[in-house]
Simulated assay, not measured.
Amino acid sequence: MASLSGKTVLVVGGSSGIGYGVAKASLLSCAAKVTIGSSSQAKIESALVRIKNDIAASGQTVEGNLSGEVVDARDSASVKALLERVGEVDHLVWTSGDDFFDVRFWGAFTAAQVAKIRPGGSITLTVGSVVVKPRKGWSLAAGLMGAVDSLTRGLAVDLAPIRVNVISPGAVKTELWDPMPPEVRNKIFEDSAKTLLVQHVAEPDEIAEAYLFCMKCQYITGQRIEVDGGAKYV
């Protein structure tokens, strides 16, 4: 069975949200080294403590090394410097995306260009569900996500046999919702859950499973995996 045992994983955007879930899940899947890339040292230090506490609370033990690196995902030079510092990795995961085109497209493209991926390794990018089911007024966002989706397929061809895939999450309970008053946020989650086939809004750990699959499965590349709770069918 495929495993992350002994593997090295770099998660850009790993200090919060889905990226945090992927970093934690990678450690729990026996990765030898997990590095999270984030915009500040404070975010990194907080994430490292939280991940270790979450794992301890789960009752599981891990032997892999966990560390962090500061990177400005909007700046190509910073992204290149990060990949140079980290060196060879087995898997690169890009979940960072607070600035649509600079980060989600150019940042990911630059990382894919310069990353030193070991044989059998992979790159996994991230888009929003708007790529499949755009909302009214979201044409620009849908176009951006479509660009990243197409980039994935192009990179899969150019970088073969390194595998390149993209995950398209639906609604997820991440820190992006924190600025809202709790009662407003909870009402949104409750209303959204009623519209989904799975009848609940995802936790980051659920979405992380799709990234693990793309890292471990040696026979998937150039694909978009939609993890949206069935939203596109409603």
Rank of each mutant, 00 (worst) to 15 (best):
H91R: 09
L92A: 00
V93H: 03
W94P: 00
W94V: 13
S96D: 12
S96V: 07
G97N: 01
G97A: 04
G97D: 05
D98G: 12
D99G: 13
F101K: 01
V103E: 09
V103G: 01
R104G: 03
F105P: 02
W106A: 14
G107A: 01
A108G: 08
A108Q: 11
T110E: 05
A111G: 09
A111L: 00
A112Q: 00
V114I: 01
A115Y: 02
A115M: 06
K116C: 15
K116Y: 08
I117P: 10
I117V: 04
R118E: 10
R118P: 14
P119S: 12
G120P: 11
S122K: 08
S122A: 10
S122H: 01
I123E: 00
T124P: 04
L125N: 07
T126D: 15
T126L: 07
S129I: 12
S129C: 13
S129Q: 13
V130L: 04
V130W: 03
V132N: 13
V132H: 11
V132L: 15
V132W: 14
K133Q: 11
K133Y: 03
P134A: 10
P134N: 11
R135M: 09
R135H: 14
K136T: 12
K136D: 08
K136C: 12
G137H: 05
G137K: 08
G137A: 11
G137R: 06
W138T: 08
W138F: 04
S139Y: 00
S139D: 14
S139V: 14
L140M: 12
A142P: 06
G143S: 09
L144G: 09
L144D: 06
M145Y: 09
